[in-house]
Design a binder for these strands. Structure first.
Ligand SMILES: [Zn+2]
Ligand SMILES: [Zn+2]
Lengths: 247, 247
DNA sequence: GCACAAGTGC
DNA sequence: GCACTTGTGC
């Protein structure tokens, strides 16, 4: 079994968990809601006293000793109606809501990687919103097809066996953790299927705020061994790059 | 005290209640939800077997023996940014969400009208949707300013003293009932303030479906003594008639 | 895949 | 009050 040392990639103390941060939302659920005032859908205001950087999850990528890497599986079609597309140029994933997006990970490992995990955590990438917890909008949480699903409030779902949905009790951040499986014979890449359960535009949820996914490679003590960050846009037409849209 | 006889205006048996109808929604809440399929915001389908007319609330106006009538108070401003405007031409109220709309009612009554009530019930006016219960969208129900408000699921609110929010136990229809007060000295019109707590476009709620308000004059036995119907459109810019909108 | 609808930022 | 954004119907 291979086990390189824990590193943190920021030259600081290794995080014993990815959850060492706080969120400052508009309400108990850290969400922005429509019409806090009369008839105005408003975005959450930046908190008056900005939260210390340490309270915000790090999105600083670092391969770490395991040389943690990702790539995307082949996209279904290359037309404008594709369910998802990843731009290497911008490091941004465009996907429809609920589309299964195959993300492959690999690590440098001579033997069997045991007790390793992939954590997927969504964040708002803009500093004004990064302190807010990414949650689904009430409309989608309450939708019948999410009824009785325990993780229905989670924005990122992972279809892999063994995926575990966690909500940090102090911050309210929702993440999904899947065991890092051994790659199939003949490759070092392991595929994970992620889907995203709100649109970027969902009122009462993401509410048009730009997002990123933070993928961390962790050991069973939740020590971060490597980190990746991917920008994310969930929309009806991921095949249409925003700049191409006709006026 | 004046008390003309109960009439029904349809030449049929008087309704002993406005609630003698059923709703056939998409789910337990009679609502349309986003993405019943993958990534498609869909409207509710018309039920395969159309509901009998008797199960749908009547919106047939009739003044009745009391000569039940309405008019609108003076609108705040006549600019495009008005909070509400009523078109006599089309019998349609255009209003912003949460805007207080003053509706005046009058009845022919020589003495003191006692034990009379005004009921306001919202319906979807198109036959495809009339069987669905009008409720607020989950986003607005869950919004912090609606927390702890018992009638937060109601689409129509009435600000008058004595307003009572009722939900029919068999149909799930939500209505608000206010006592018919004596008009102030010098007029026969009594003013009621109504507000509408979702946009016409609210996903998971009205979801772009056209609506009407049914106002009924009732006695304390919920017998209908008169009925009025007003078409309704709740939107961000009620001052802009839909036809005027620039392309 | 286009044209429309309609809430939002500014 | 305009222009833009972006989900939706067709
Ligand atoms: Zn959503
Ligand atoms: Zn609403």
């Amino acid at each position: 079994m291979c086990k390189p040392g824990v590193s943190d990639g920021n030259g600081a103390i290794p995080e014993s968990t990815t959850n060492g941060f706080n969120s400052f939302g508009q309400d108990d659920h850290g969400r922005s809601y429509p019409d806090s005032g009369t008839n105005v859908y408003c975005r959450p205001q930046a908190s008056l006293s900005p939260s210390p950087m340490s309270l915000i999850p790090s999105s600083q990528p670092f391969p770490g000793s395991y040389n943690f890497q990702f790539e995307f599986g082949k996209q279904p079609k290359d037309t404008k109606s594709t369910a998802w597309t990843f731009s290497d140029m911008t490091n941004k994933l465009y996907a429809q809501k609920d589309a299964m997006c195959p993300v492959r990970f690999r690590i440098d490992c001579d033997g069997v990687a045991n007790g390793l995990y992939i954590r997927a955590l969504p964040i708002y990438s803009r500093p004004e919103h990064v302190q807010d917890v990414v949650k689904r909008c009430p409309n989608h949480i309450q939708a019948p097809e999410s009824a009785n699903i325990p993780h229905r409030e989670h924005f990122i779902w992972c279809e892999n066996q063994g995926a575990r949905y966690v909500t940090d009790s102090s911050t309210g951040r929702c993440a999904v953790i899947a065991p890092y499986d051994a790659p199939p014979a003949g490759t070092s890449w392991v595929t994970y299927l992620f889907s995203f359960k709100c649109l970027n535009s969902c009122v009462g949820g993401p509410n048009r705020r730009e997002m990123s996914i933070i993928y961390t490679l962790e050991n069973s003590n939740q020590e971060v061994l490597g980190r990746l960050s991917i920008d994310l846009r969930i929309c009806a037409c991921p095949g249409e790059r925003p700049e191409i849209r006709r006026r």
